[in-house]
C-alpha cells in the first residue's frame, strides 16, 4: 500500500504507462472511498473526486511538481483528494474550513487546477479541430504540451532520426491546425 514514490513510477506515469496507473488506482481506491465517507460524501461523488484526484496526481507527477522522495504515493493522493473534498463541500455548503485541517499535508506541494476547466470560445474552436488532427500530430503535440517532454526526448520516444526532423514535424502540425481553424 505505502508504495514509495520513485523516479521509476514518475517516469512510467509520464510515459502514459497504464499498468502503473491502474495499480495506483486499485491500491488506494477502497481506502480513499472510506476516507471520503467520513466527510459524508456519497459513494458516487467520492468516486468522482477520487478519479479527479488521480488525474491531478498524474498531472502533478508529469509536470515535475512531485519530486519529493520522502512520501508515498498514497500520501500525495490523499492530500490532493482531501483538498478536493474540502473544495467540493465548501462549494456545496458554503462552510469555511479551518485551515489547520490541512496541517498534516503542509509539507507537500501540489497543484490542483482542475476546477478551472472552462474553455474560452477560442479554445473550444481549437479543441474541435485538434480532435480532427492526425494521430501522429496529436501525439507529438500532447507529448510536448502536456507531458512536457523536450523535442529531443520526443524524437527518441517516437523514433525520429533527429531532433530537427521532429521539430519541423511539430511546426507542420501547428500550421495544419491553424489552417483548419481559419478555413
Amino acid at each position: 500500500m505505502r508504495e514509495e514514490l520513485t523516479d521509476k513510477i514518475l517516469e512510467s506515469l509520464k510515459r502514459g504507462d497504464n499498468a502503473t496507473l491502474e495499480k495506483i488506482y486499485i491500491d488506494n481506491r477502497v481506502a480513499f472511498i472510506n476516507f471520503s465517507k467520513k466527510f459524508g460524501l456519497p459513494e458516487v461523488d467520492a468516486l468522482d473526486v477520487y478519479q479527479d484526484a488521480i488525474i491531478a496526481f498524474h498531472e502533478n507527477a508529469i509536470n515535475g511538481k512531485i519530486n519529493s522522495f520522502n512520501s508515498s504515493v498514497s500520501t500525495y493522493l490523499f492530500a490532493i483528494g482531501k483538498f478536493m473534498i474540502f473544495q467540493l463541500l465548501r462549494v456545496d455548503s458554503g462552510i469555511e474550513f479551518d485551515s489547520n485541517m490541512m496541517i498534516e499535508e503542509k509539507n507537500i506541494e501540489f497543484d490542483v487546477n482542475l476546477y478551472d476547466e472552462k474553455l474560452t470560445n477560442k479554445q473550444k474552436v481549437i479543441a474541435k479541430h485538434f480532435k480532427m488532427l492526425g494521430e501522429r500530430c496529436k501525439e507529438v503535440l500532447s507529448l510536448f504540451y502536456y507531458q512536457g517532454y523536450t523535442l529531443g526526448e520526443i524524437a527518441v520516444i517516437l523514433g525520429y532520426s533527429t531532433k530537427n526532423v521532429l521539430k519541423s514535424s511539430k511546426s507542420r502540425c501547428l500550421k495544419q491546425l491553424k489552417e483548419m481553424i481559419n478555413n
Binding site: L119, I126, A127, S142
Partner: peptide
C-alpha cells in the same frame, strides 16, 4: 500555443 496547451490538457484529462 498557450490555448493549445490548455486544450490538450483538457483533452488528456
Amino acid at each position: 500555443q498557450k490555448d493549445l496547451k490548455k486544450v490538450i490538457a483538457v483533452n488528456q484529462r
